[in-house]
Write a protein that binds this DNA or RNA. Structure first.
Lengths: 121, 121
DNA sequence: TTTGCATATTCGAGTGGGTGTATATAAAGA
DNA sequence: TCTTTATATACACCCACTCGAATATGCAAA
């Protein structure tokens, strides 16, 4: 029951929904990319990512200086369904398009160039 | 965006989830039945039902002295999906079984005997 | 119209969550 | 080691939310 309400309270914040939508689109993002896309202070983004991690919606891995967040892969069905609903909902918001546009202009950190030569970024 | 966060914050309360699960099971319930099933003060139930109505998850209709709550039928897809996820999640909680058991013992108000002679209740 | 039942609302108190600012930690490179 | 970049945390403040208790409203039957 507490798991359940944690999930939905994690989903009940606009900034966290924006983070989830971008990660759903890009698979994996680091904090500084999210800061660039959402144009919000870094501690704010970091705290919201923590909330999403504690709700078991995101997981993080550190790579050099960067911390990369992605969707958790061991969610119960209803949790994944709730997450999908949230992402689907925010995709219909104008904010999502703006965030995507800004994200595309954010310089990719070298660690995000998966499968390529890191110098190529 | 505000619609979206309203939905998820409406879903982020254990009492509201219990209400939604019972209504999903019984289609339509009045406040006094919910009070009996959840064993909580009537003003509390009433306030939570109001929150769910304002999030467009429930609708209410008055029949004599009773107010009957049921799922809204004009939800966007992602909203219905979120609601289904919430109900699915709470069904796996022990609390749900207890609520169902208590609900089955609550005396049905005459207005809930759909399609039958009301005296038969 | 008075009484009783069902539901909704108001009020004040208490609590948790979000935020900005500042600072701490972690890692890499000079 | 010192600096830079990236991320996390600490602290104080404020606001929204929840609650219990009391009261108001709506409806029907006597």
């Amino acid at each position: 029951m507490e798991n359940l309400t944690n999930i939905f309270s994690a989903l009940s914040d606009p900034i966290r929904l924006r983070i989830l939508a971008l990660i759903a689109k890009e698979t994996e993002l680091c904090v500084c990319e999210l800061v660039g896309a959402l144009q919000l202070p870094q501690p704010k983004i970091s705290r919201h990512c923590k909330v999403l991690s504690e709700a078991n919606l995101l997981v993080s891995r550190r790579e050099a200086q960067w911390v990369l967040y992605s969707q958790a892969d061991d969610m119960p069905d209803w949790s994944r369904q709730a997450l999908e609903a949230a992402v689907e909902g925010i995709k219909q918001d104008a904010q999502y398009a703006e965030d995507c546009a800004r994200l595309s202009k954010v310089e990719r950190p070298p660690v995000r160039c998966d499968g390529m030569e890191k110098q190529a970024c």
